[in-house]
Design a protein around this nucleic acid. Structure first.
Lengths: 208, 208
DNA sequence: GACGAATTGGACAAGGCTGTCTAAATTTGT
DNA sequence: ACAAATTTAGACAGCCTTGTCCAATTCGTC
């Protein structure tokens, strides 16, 4: 395990103030001196950890958004599968859980660092997801007012049953993820879905 | 400000390890010795803080659930008002934000303390809210499959647009709360609402 | 094998925090 | 007004952590 990875783990478990360099060095399997050689001091190491996590999480999120079902065969099951991917690869995995915890615990102390995350992470993420939903709506698969609102509500719904697990820093089981995604997508489609629409028919014709 | 209140504030801002007794004493306007006289040591003080917050939050949540609109005049606006009350009095207020942050930051270190919160807080809260939604469904105002799922999704939806603010420990403005609640309730009713139902008509008759 | 670079373990000073103690000052109850 | 209880300021020992220094060792590369 690299020093930065070990540091991420210890910072998350102990908090910034509670983490000490000896613990991090031991977790990384190197000497304390090596930690100082590589990263200067504790604060610089912390910044490196957050940057690393932010970068990897964003990459994962955009890679997953790229798998959004633009031409769904079965809208419900395709969206459920997408939601499960999103959870597994971006929200429940190591990087996602760690980054969330660090933001919650230390965000107030490092405003500029987390402002950067906020712009590059959720800001661009939600826009990208909203664009995909807008496209689905344009193709007649959904009936959406504001795509940004729909995207946020989609994420909120498919995670609705995982909140408590997230709060305590746990990892939900594959089954819990699937159930939350299934319930969330069904409600989402009850609200925004079009019933029994012939595949491929443009949205404009539906009103006729 | 009482010692426990001051301690809550400092523990939240600095984390358990980062909080020191001098800071707490100064925030409370008493001497360090008085803190030790009253609460023994740092860990006992922390436990007292969590118990105090848990108790007050639960009281607030149940008081607010008691204002659930069982006989709604206008279902949409009544649910929006309820969601706004829930946010203002339980989730965005001082106790709610503090308790959430402490659970996220220190929950892993005090399993038994937060297990207690989990049972008495979200467990009973969600059941109580689910019962109210079940009642609305029985009265024919909603069409709900699983009331527990619906209750969790209701909360997820009305908070969907406040997630980032919560993450950074901020307090959303009254306008943001209202907008998130409005968007959330509209989506909720699109999914679970019954359209143009004559007031007071039993659900069973609707199918006729 | 040899040489430079990186790593290691250990010692170290400086500083911070916890929790205790004590004597003086203040508040409270009667 | 007096006595008891509480609060206060300050000093203090013990411990932990950070960050530096250095000599010895290991590693990578030629």
């Amino acid at each position: 395990m690299s020093v930065v990875d070990a540091a991420a783990s210890v910072f998350c478990r102990e908090g910034y103030a509670g983490a000490n360099i000896d613990l991090i060095a031991a977790a990384a399997g190197v000497s304390r001196q090596t930690v100082y050689n590589h990263h200067g001091d504790k604060e610089k190491l912390f910044v490196a950890v957050v940057r690393d996590l932010t970068e990897r999480c964003n990459a994962g999120i955009f890679a997953t958004i790229a798998t959004f079902p633009d031409q769904p065969a079965d809208l419900e099951s395709d969206l459920i599968a997408f939601a499960v991917r999103m959870n597994r690869n971006c929200i429940c995995n190591r990087d996602g859980r760690f980054l969330r915890k660090l933001i919650q615990a230390e965000g107030e102390r490092y405003p500029e660092l987390f402002a950067e995350w906020r712009e590059q992470g959720p800001g661009r993420t939600w826009s990208a997801l909203a664009a995909r939903f807008a496209r689905l709506a344009f193709a007649g698969h959904l009936s959406i007012g504001d795509p940004d609102v729909a995207a946020r509500q989609f994420l909120a719904l498919v995670n609705a049953e995982l909140q408590i697990t997230f709060m305590l820093g746990g990892t939900p089981t594959e089954e819990e993820v699937l159930r939350s995604a299934t319930n969330g997508v069904r409600t989402f489609l009850s609200a925004f879905g079009r019933k029994k629409l012939p595949a491929g028919k443009p949205a404009a014709l539906v009103h006729a």
